[in-house]
Amino acid sequence: MPVKDYLRERFFPHMWCPGCGHGTILNALIHAVEGLRLNKNEIVMVSGIGCSARISGYVDFHSLHTIHGRALAFATGVKLSKPNLKVIVPMGDGDALAIGGNHFIHAARRNIDITAIVMNNRIYGMTGGQFSPLSGPGVKATTAPYTTIDSSFDVVQLAKAAGASFVARSTAFHVKEATEMLTKAITHKGFSVVEILSQCPTHFGRKNKEGDAVNMLNLYKDNTAKLGSKALEEKPHLIPRGIFVDSERPEYCEEYDKIIAAAMKEKAS
């Protein structure tokens, strides 16, 4: 099926700024879904609020545009009632880890079969460029004109510690790698987290003198290194990319089905 068949073309051109990494992530996601030959009716996309969350309006899947930070809570409900559907939850950095931080760790703890995508642009773009819990120290934002002092979360370590059974990181520059990771995450049984670094040239780039979208993409190339690569060994300050966790753990819906079966058996006898 051509890529365009997965889009709601009537809403294009989309509302993201020129050069926004979120568009590239949508592109990668569509290619991943197309590669898996999934039926549009098998997929549910649940999103919260923010630039990133607008993605659910552009895909021709079942879609839910819910409240800020609570996308994973809604997605848990969808998955439990219809376990056969593939549930994909794209979130921004603030949506996933500030407003929805609690939902994020508990969805990971339960290991429910949902694919969470953290589209990390390190800023609240839609509301005008406030710093987020993933901005990190020394970053300029509208709410931090003299730079931030807050340390950032490491999404990978957080997801890993909370119990996610698939954790990966890529960037909007490394599109083929990102598409591959999304493909693996969608097929993985259990809670999968894919963090994709995404450039916000309008707010983050302009405030922090990182130049235009092309320049920011080149920074992703220069400042990241593949897990297990020589570059990462030599320069450990680089941001590691790759698949950090790919393990098997009891999945929530299956465990719940077992409880239902046990309860019904008792009732029948």
């Binding site: 889009l7 294009f12 051109p13 993201w16 926004c20 083929k176």
Partner: peptide, 13 residues
């Protein structure tokens, strides 16, 4: 196909 894959506006085929 890197332009097609990287295009944030899904413009290129």
């Amino acid at each position: 196909r890197m332009c097609e894959l990287r295009c944030p506006d899904l413009t290129i085929e």
